[in-house]
Simulated assay, not measured.
Amino acid sequence: MNPSNWDIFTGEVVGTALLILLGGGVVAAITFKKSKAYQAGWVAISLGWGFAVMTGAYVAAGVSGAHLNPAVTLGLAIKGDTDWGDVPLYIASETLGAMIGAALVWLAYYGQFRDHLTDPEVVGDRRDGEPKAIEAMEKGAGPVLGIFSTGPEIRNPVQNVMTEIIGTFVLVIAILTQGLNQEGNGLGPLGVLIVALVVASIGLSLGGPTGYAINPARDLGPRIVHALLPLPNKGGSDWSYAWVPIVGPLIGGALAGGLYELAFA
């Protein structure tokens, strides 16, 4: 039985909010000097995001199917297990949930944000800075943007999009072949665990170039929150890059759905 509109809304909002709270939280934990997990490293980030997916998906699986990701919703729609009429509600709910989760990360680390963004070693003395350098920081990635959204190590749009396509394809094809519930419209109990391990694996193997968004809502929702929050010296939200973690994952999800129909259906 397909979930109701209310089930989709509540399940996806709550599940995605938990996903981003714990995922963004692990990035914050290793970023801030006054955090007990400071500099814990990339393995901690990859495992943290895997556990974050597991928590959000287990909470939402019995309600909405736990898509938690527009790329997953798109793949399931192409496969035929999610009604196309439900796709906009899924995506809107996922994005809203991601925004709520990002705001909760800010609240949980409120003191650390303020301390970090007033540290001269982090933001520099902007009074003595060159105007062009200050303008670049305000337009580009600010010093805490990585807690909210992703950014590339090498800014090459073609490579960056391709990396996101490949990573998301791995995620969605794993969900479609291994993770669905009996109705096929979302994750089953064992599937949640499988997908959590896949997300950790993607982070460890493919996350280095772009920070592996593999989820448009996961990147866009928190980026909007970063732009709106009253953080001192936060810098820009890097909107010139924001299209990459939207377009790449959607293409990857669509390709996975199409391949499933051709090779596995």
Rank of each mutant, 00 (worst) to 15 (best):
residue 3 P to N: 09
residue 3 P to G: 07
residue 4 S to E: 13
residue 4 S to P: 03
residue 7 D to I: 00
residue 9 F to P: 03
residue 9 F to K: 08
residue 14 V to F: 14
residue 15 G to Q: 09
residue 20 I to S: 04
residue 20 I to N: 00
residue 24 G to C: 07
residue 25 G to F: 08
residue 26 V to S: 10
residue 29 A to R: 03
residue 35 S to C: 03
residue 38 Y to H: 15
residue 40 A to C: 05
residue 41 G to T: 01
residue 42 W to I: 06
residue 42 W to H: 12
residue 42 W to R: 15
residue 43 V to N: 06
residue 46 S to L: 06
residue 47 L to T: 11
residue 48 G to W: 01
residue 48 G to D: 12
residue 49 W to N: 02
residue 49 W to L: 04
residue 62 G to K: 01
residue 62 G to C: 04
residue 63 V to E: 03
residue 63 V to M: 11
residue 63 V to L: 14
residue 65 G to P: 01
residue 68 L to M: 14
residue 69 N to A: 13
residue 70 P to G: 07
residue 71 A to F: 07
residue 72 V to Y: 05
residue 73 T to R: 01
residue 79 K to P: 00
residue 82 T to I: 15
residue 86 D to A: 14
residue 87 V to M: 10
residue 92 A to F: 11
residue 92 A to N: 09
residue 94 E to R: 02
residue 94 E to F: 11
residue 95 T to V: 10
residue 101 G to P: 05
residue 106 W to E: 07
residue 108 A to L: 14
residue 108 A to T: 05
residue 108 A to N: 11
residue 109 Y to G: 07
residue 109 Y to H: 08
residue 112 Q to A: 12
residue 113 F to C: 08
residue 114 R to H: 15
residue 120 P to M: 09
residue 127 R to H: 08
residue 128 D to L: 15
residue 131 P to L: 01
residue 132 K to N: 13
residue 135 E to R: 14
residue 135 E to P: 02
residue 143 P to K: 07
residue 149 S to W: 05
residue 152 P to F: 07
residue 157 P to G: 07
residue 157 P to F: 01
residue 158 V to E: 14
residue 161 V to M: 13
residue 163 T to N: 12
residue 169 F to C: 04
residue 170 V to M: 13
residue 172 V to H: 02
residue 173 I to Y: 00
residue 173 I to C: 13
residue 177 T to D: 12
residue 180 L to K: 13
residue 181 N to R: 14
residue 181 N to S: 11
residue 190 L to F: 09
residue 193 L to A: 15
residue 193 L to C: 05
residue 196 A to C: 04
residue 197 L to F: 15
residue 200 A to R: 00
residue 202 I to H: 00
residue 202 I to Q: 04
residue 204 L to R: 02
residue 205 S to W: 09
residue 205 S to M: 13
residue 211 G to F: 07
residue 215 N to R: 06
residue 219 D to S: 14
residue 222 P to H: 13
residue 224 I to H: 06
residue 226 H to M: 10
residue 230 P to C: 00
residue 231 L to G: 05
residue 235 G to M: 03
residue 239 W to S: 15
residue 240 S to L: 15
residue 242 A to Y: 00
residue 247 V to D: 14
residue 257 G to A: 07
residue 258 G to E: 04
residue 259 L to S: 09
residue 260 Y to V: 03
residue 262 L to R: 03
residue 263 A to D: 08
